[in-house]
Amino acid sequence: MVAYTILSGLLFGLYFSLMAIGLNLIFGVMRMVNLAHGDFIMLGAFAAFFAYTLWNMNPLVTMLVVFFLFIILGGALYYLVVPRLLRAHDPEMLSLILFFGLSQIIQALAVIAFGNNQRSIDYTALGSGTVYLFGQGFEESWVVVASVSLLAIILVSIYLYVTKLGVATRAVMSHREEAASAGISVHRVSAYAMGIGLALAAIAGVFSPFMIGSIDPTMGTDLTTTSFAIIIIGSLGNPIGTIVGGMIYGLSLMYMESYQPSWSSLVPYLLLFIILLLKPSGLLGRRMRNA
């Protein structure tokens, strides 16, 4: 039981990291709080559902399609709203409201388009076997999703630390003004960050029917708060810290569900709160704290 709890906590931890990393990227680059994050996860989930039920498309293929679609969507969204918002008095706080409004719009349109009923994808779509890890049997789909999540996080790290655009992205994250004066096109970097951020959320959505359960148009709200907890536990504005956050969240959630299920929903918030008070910048963060 203990081994099973720990291992499933790690598998889910990887998935949770993927779920939250896009939110962190967007906040890190733009200082925008994307309250519609969970709704993009929901859109990814419905994409997977329809691709599977209509064309029997493997979720792994859907993932690739969705990734490119949402990069374009994110870039467009960036140019549509963010430059305008940046001219306001307090863009960071206003972004909360703006994305709340966007979240309402997405949910309303999703209800009109998809209806209110829960939908599920046949769990065998990602493999029906059992995978044994350290003597414990796990659903094959969990292992597939955890592996893909790990791969995606590695690719994001390579992007941020190796590619030219990624290095520029990190420069904007740490010193926005200096980066701009050094000739980095902040808008271009930010538009990419927005696109990649939403695309990562959407591919997390593609796998959500296998990890989180049945999907519906309003599932996003809870996922947004969970993602927030994860990135703050790791560290806000540091995408790599998200992995730490995801792992801690996954492990503690599974532990509570095994031994104290009624308190399990308290876990993310309790962790978030304790970490904020002890180390306001998150476990891996630097500075960002008031006078």
Binding site: Y4, T5, S8, E139, M211, I212, M254, E257, P261, S262
Partner: peptide
Amino acid sequence: TGGVPTSTTNYAIIDHAIAA
């Protein structure tokens, strides 16, 4: 006996606890 939050969406771990 176990009470879980109404928002619970993944019962895999709980199933194992019950099976025990």
